Amino acid sequence: MHLLISNDDGIFSLGIRTLANTLAQAGHQITVVCPDRERSATGHGLTLHKPIRAEQVEGIFQPSVMAWACSGTPSDCVKLALGALLNTPPDMVLSGINHGSNLGTDVLYSGTVSAAMEGVIEDVTGIAFSLTSFSSKDFQPAANFAQRLVAYLAANPLPQPMLLNVNVPAVPVEKIAGVAITRQGLRRYIDQFEKRIDPRGKTYYWLAGELLEDVPQPDLELVVTSQTRLGEASGTWLNQMMTDVQAIRQHYITITPLQYNLSCAHGLHHLRDWTLSVE
């Protein structure tokens, strides 16, 4: 398979090197297009007011891997690859392996997840991989799982392009409880801005959020369509599924399907009887 790989930790990160080299060793055609430096927490940001530059790099990955370092955001990288650098669309867009988890509401800020979502926007399945630790440097178990997941999807294609958000617990392989299909959970942070003074006497602020681990996990809001054929009974069992936040605590590898459609079904139901006028 032809796999496009990006990330938000930059071209020199150990996570993307481990992922790209592992998949190349498995016989896949690998193209890497990722930021030339760390671009974490950029979300779905795009570069609009200055040029985007991409330079081909050598000596970082295995010789069979074609790699570019891009001056833009993770989303820029994937858009540039799909729109200019690649002659044909890839079979999948992969992102990661991120240094740190992307669970629950983290996905709204994550450059890793946004890079994979760019593939879905262009009708290509995307997978975001994250290792749930900022200190661990053992990305190989996550890369090995990525290889197995890609092989499984090749043999069992998804019914339509979607984003799979994968988080791998940073524990020894023998302590991983298994693989869990999960729904998106909720993580809350207490945002604390530290006020500081620079050497020139100017005030600046440093964001230092504190994670609240034990928060109630939300129900899954269903959008019932003729395609999904989901009804009230389906909603019951779906809401009984673990969230990604819950499953990671139990040392499961989590796979959470995500979409870019943020329409609020409850809101549409509530607003449908509104009678507003322009005057």
Rank of each mutant, 00 (worst) to 15 (best):
L94V: 01
Q217Y: 12
G267I: 04
L48S: 12
T88F: 05
T254A: 02
L212D: 05
L48R: 13
V171I: 14
H49M: 06
V120Q: 10
V179H: 08
V168G: 05
A180M: 09
C264P: 03
A177L: 02
Q259P: 00
R229F: 04
A84Q: 12
S64Q: 15
L271C: 06
H269E: 00
Q217R: 10
T125S: 15
R148W: 09
I121T: 11
A151M: 09
Q147W: 12
A54R: 00
Q160S: 10
K195W: 00
S101H: 05
S234L: 00
L186D: 05
D219S: 04
F145I: 14
F61N: 09
V173C: 09
L4T: 07
F61V: 07
G15P: 07
G43A: 03
G43Q: 04
S136P: 15
L149G: 11
D9Q: 07
A247Y: 00
D8G: 05
H269C: 00
I127Q: 11
P169N: 02
Q192E: 08
R249T: 08
G15W: 02
Y109N: 09
I16R: 00
V179Q: 04
Y189E: 07
L163M: 15
A151G: 04
T203G: 01
G100M: 12
L230K: 01
V120G: 09
L4E: 05
V33S: 01
N156Q: 11
D36H: 06
N7V: 00
S277A: 12
R37H: 13
A26M: 07
S114Q: 06
R188S: 07
I176F: 05
M1E: 08
L19D: 02
H28Y: 13
W206S: 06
M92A: 14
I176H: 03
V224K: 03
N165D: 14
I30K: 03
D219M: 03
D219F: 01
